[in-house]
C-alpha cells in the first residue's frame, strides 16, 4: 500500500471552486444577454464576442509575459469581466473601443494589482468608466430596440429613460416596457425581469447573499420615493428609477463582485446603502443622467475601510444599543 497521507482536518472539501462560481455568474447573466441579443441583434453579438475574447486574450498575455505566475485564465473570471463589460456598453459602439475597454479593464483594473483577488475596483466598471470619459458621445448614444435587428454601427438611436428624465423630454416608457426591457440603453441593462431571474439563480446557488442587491434597491426606492413625493414634477417615480438605467445590472452583478465588496453581512448592508444613496444623488442632482457605475466604484474604495471597522456579529455577542 502507498504511504498514508497526513493532513490537518477537515479531510473533505465541499467541491466549490473559483471557476464554478464564475461559471455560475455567467449562467445567471444569460437571460440578460439573451434579451440584449433579441433587442439589439447583430450589434450586441459583435460587442459581446469582442469583449469576452479580448478580455481572455489580454489576461492570458499579461499573465504569461508580465506576471509569469501560473495561468489563471481558465478560472473564468476574465470571461466574466468581458461579459459584464459588454453588457454595460451600448451595442452600436465600434469594435476598437470595446478592445480598448477590455485592455483597460483587465490590464489596469485587474492585472496591475496582481490578478484576481487583489483588485480594489471592479475591473469591468473601470473599463466602462474609462470608455465613458474618453468617448462620451459613442458611450451615450444608444440604439433603439428592434427585435432581431441586423444593424450594428448604423443602428437608429434612442435616448435612455434616465436621459429623458434628466433633460425633461420625450415620453417615459410604460412600466411593463421598463420591466421587460423595451427601451434604449446598454446591452444588458434594459431588462429588469431577465436580471431578476439571474438574481434568483445566484441566490439559489448560494453564489451571493441577498444583502447587497436588496439594500441597494431598497435604498434607491426609498430615496427616490422621498424625492418624488417632494416634487413629482422634477423627480421621476421610484418604480421608474428602479427599472431604468443600469441600476438592476449594477445592484445584482456589478456591486456583488466578490473581490471588491465587503465581506460580512453588516458591511454589505452599509455598502449597499452607500451605493444606493450615491446613485440617487448623481441621478437627481449630478451632471450625468446615470450614476450606478460611479457609485459602485466610489463604494469599492470604501470597502477596505468597511471591512476593517464593521465586524460580523460574533457568536454570543450582545447587541449594543
Amino acid at each position: 500500500m502507498d504511504k498514508l497521507i497526513i493532513s490537518p482536518a477537515p479531510h473533505i472539501h465541499g467541491g466549490d471552486s473559483v471557476s464554478k462560481d464564475m461559471t455560475g455568474v455567467i449562467i445567471a447573466l444569460v437571460p440578460a444577454l439573451l434579451v440584449g441579443l433579441y433587442f439589439f441583434g447583430l450589434g450586441a453579438l459583435v460587442v459581446t464576442l469582442t469583449a469576452v475574447a479580448s478580455c481572455v486574450l489580454f489576461e492570458y498575455l499579461i499573465q504569461k509575459f508580465m506576471l509569469k505566475g501560473s495561468n489563471t485564465v481558465m478560472d473564468g473570471s476574465a470571461a466574466l469581466t468581458g461579459l459584464l463589460l459588454a453588457l454595460n456598453l451600448p451595442s452600436n459602439i465600434p469594435v476598437w473601443m470595446v478592445v480598448i475597454g477590455s485592455l483597460v479593464a483587465i490590464g489596469i483594473g485587474k492585472m496591475s494589482f496582481g490578478g484576481l483577488g487583489n483588485n480594489p475596483f471592479n475591473p469591468a466598471l473601470i473599463g466602462r468608466v474609462f470608455l465613458l470619459i474618453s468617448f462620451p458621445v459613442e458611450m451615450t448614444t444608444w440604439p433603439r430596440p428592434v427585435p432581431f435587428s441586423a444593424a450594428y454601427l448604423d443602428a437608429e438611436t434612442a435616448p435612455t429613460t434616465l436621459a429623458m428624465i434628466k433633460d425633461h423630454f420625450g415620453e417615459i416608457p410604460s412600466t411593463l416596457d421598463l420591466f421587460i426591457g423595451n427601451m434604449g440603453g446598454s446591452l444588458g441593462e434594459i431588462s429588469a425581469v431577465a436580471i431578476l431571474i439571474g438574481l434568483v439563480y445566484l441566490l439559489v446557488k448560494k453564489i451571493i447573499t441577498w444583502h447587497i442587491p436588496v439594500s441597494i434597491l431598497a435604498t434607491v426606492f426609498v430615496f427616490t420615493g422621498i424625492l418624488n413625493l417632494a416634487n413629482p414634477e422634477l423627480y421621476a417615480s421610484p418604480v421608474v428609477h428602479l427599472f431604468s438605467g443600469g441600476l438592476m445590472l449594477g445592484a445584482v452583478f456589478m456591486a456583488t463582485d466578490y473581490v471588491t465588496s465587503p465581506m460580512n453581512p453588516r458591511g454589505m448592508l452599509v455598502y449597499g446603502v452607500g451605493i444606493g444613496i450615491i446613485t440617487v444623488v448623481i441621478r437627481a442632482f449630478g451632471a450625468y443622467p446615470e450614476g450606478v457605475s460611479f457609485a459602485i466604484l466610489i463604494m469599492n474604495a470604501f470597502t477596505p475601510l468597511i471591512n476593517t471597522y464593521i465586524k460580523p456579529k460574533r457568536f454570543g455577542e450582545k447587541v449594543k444599543i
Binding site: 462560481d21 483577488g117 487583489n118 465581506m263 460580512n264 460580523p312
Partner: peptide
Amino acid sequence: KNCIRCAKCVTVCPMGLEPFL
C-alpha cells in the same frame, strides 16, 4: 489559489468570525 474575497468563510462560520482575515 488567491483569496477571491467571496466571504463564504464568513458566511459559514458558526462563531461569526472572519476566517480569511
